[in-house]
């Protein structure tokens, strides 16, 4: 939801250590980060903040080695869910970058998976590549796969991923 960006970021965890040398706050143990309708679950989230406040959260390792996020879609009662080995969430522009075993499912139906997915929560656009770190590896084993389920007749077709 677009309003998410204006909300404060809330985090609960078993432990936090404020590391002023590296200028980060390291949250560990059942970490849940929420901002408006977005929730991000992981075992570890490294948060960096700047003069304006929350800047970025890097979430790693959760259940099954994957960090997971969930965010409500704008003006719809549907949710977008994503998972990856590492999720970099940038609160300022409400974008999430998913690295390794990345998957995003929209409304429980349409699914995109690949080695890297860049998800723009504000505009609800996502871009996937089959190589790590947004690289494209030609004729490689790992492929981007996009599944768009047919809507019930008469419903507007979902935007197709590039």
């Amino acid at each position: 939801e677009q309003a998410d960006r204006s909300k404060p970021v809330k985090i609960t965890a078993d432990r936090v250590s404020v590391d002023d040398k590296n200028k980060v706050q390291i949250f560990e143990g059942s970490v849940v980060l929420t901002q408006g309708t977005l929730t991000l679950h992981a075992d570890k989230i490294v948060v960096s903040q700047d003069q304006d406040g929350f800047q970025k959260g890097v979430a790693t390792s959760g259940a099954g080695g994957l960090a997971r996020f969930r965010q409500k879609r704008e003006a719809k009662s549907e949710y977008i869910e994503g998972e990856a080995e590492r999720i970099v969430y940038n609160a300022k522009n409400d974008t999430a970058q998913l690295f390794n075993r990345a998957k995003v499912v929209s409304g429980g139906r349409d699914e995109v998976s690949g080695q890297y997915i860049d998800y723009d929560g504000y505009n609800e656009i996502y871009q996937a590549t089959n190589g790590p770190n947004a690289t494209v590896v030609s004729n490689a084993k790992s492929r981007v796969s996009v599944t768009i389920q047919p809507k019930k007749s008469g419903a507007k077709p979902a935007a197709s991923a590039p």
């Binding site: 404060p8 985090i11 609960t12 250590s17 404020v18 002023d20 706050q25 948060v47 406040g53 929350f54």
Partner: peptide, 17 residues
């Protein structure tokens, strides 16, 4: 330069808030 705390509930505000 390390400070740690347990059973944590944190809120990070931005300048506008």
């Amino acid at each position: 330069g390390l400070v740690s705390l347990h059973q944590v509930r944190a809120t990070v505000y931005s300048k506008s808030q």
